[in-house]
């Protein structure tokens, strides 16, 4: 554990909490892509199956359970509790275009051809593109509420901090996880355009139409 990794995890947690609290307090999930949130729940589910096979640390176990619970709570709020406010007309990204290549790639490129490893690889690849339905929705409607942009900012910051963590770990432990690093860099690149808008235009984002 190093400061970049810890800051990255905290940033990830903050992002998820911002979104959940926004939906809970406003009793509305307008402008939020339910499809992205389902993909993130799928990411956590397939990645954290090792909760049942290996024990790493109390921190690790607690964070995994928290991320799983929060992601399912978010999906529940969007599709059940506040489904009247769900903007399904603008949440139309075809997730099969993400899922099919990601499933294919996780079978081709993995550390071991075992069910758990393939699912772990699938989750890493899927995470790198899971935000695309949300970004697509913002492009389609041409706007995002400021609180939604804070969510995206912390979500992007989390992966950027993980890159710093990987650089640190490579230099101090000689550790590197090729699949995670490549996907993490790709994931961070998806946020760069958003970061640029966030900084230059302020919190409330309107894309030029």
């Amino acid at each position: 554990m190093n400061i970049f990794r810890l800051a990255g995890d905290v940033s990830h947690l903050v992002a998820i909490l911002i979104l959940l609290m926004k939906i809970w307090r406003s009793k509305s999930c307008a402008g939020i892509s339910g499809r992205s949130q389902v993909l993130f729940a799928l990411v956590f589910t397939t990645r954290y199956l090792d909760l049942f096979t290996v024990y790493i640390s109390a921190y690790n176990t607690v964070m995994k359970v928290v991320f799983l619970a929060l992601s399912y709570a978010t999906v529940y709020l969007i599709y059940m509790r506040f489904r009247n406010s769900y903007d399904s007309e603008n949440d139309t990204f075809r997730v099969e275009f993400l899922l099919i290549p990601v499933i294919g790639l996780s079978f081709l490129e993995n550390y071991a051809f075992t069910p758990l490893e393939i699912l772990w690889t699938f989750s890493i690849f899927l995470e790198s593109v899971a935000i695309m339905p949300q970004l697509f929705m913002i492009t389609k409607t041409g706007e995002a509420e400021s609180i939604t942009t804070h969510y995206l900012f912390f979500l992007g910051l989390y992966r950027a901090l993980y890159i710093a963590n990987w650089v640190w770990r490579y230099h101090t432990e000689g550790f590197y996880d090729q699949i995670a690093i490549v996907s993490g860099v790709v994931q961070t690149i998806f946020y760069c355009d958003f970061f640029y808008l966030y900084v230059t235009r302020g919190e409330e984002i309107r894309t030029p139409s």
Binding site: R5, D9, H12, R47, D50, T53, V54, I56, S57, N60, M63, K64, F67, Y111, A112, T114, E117, W120, Y162, N165, D177, A180
Partner: peptide, 10 residues
């Protein structure tokens, strides 16, 4: 023996 890699990151 089955491969067991430890993914210690979240």
């Amino acid at each position: 023996r089955e491969f067991t890699s430890i993914h210690d990151e979240l």
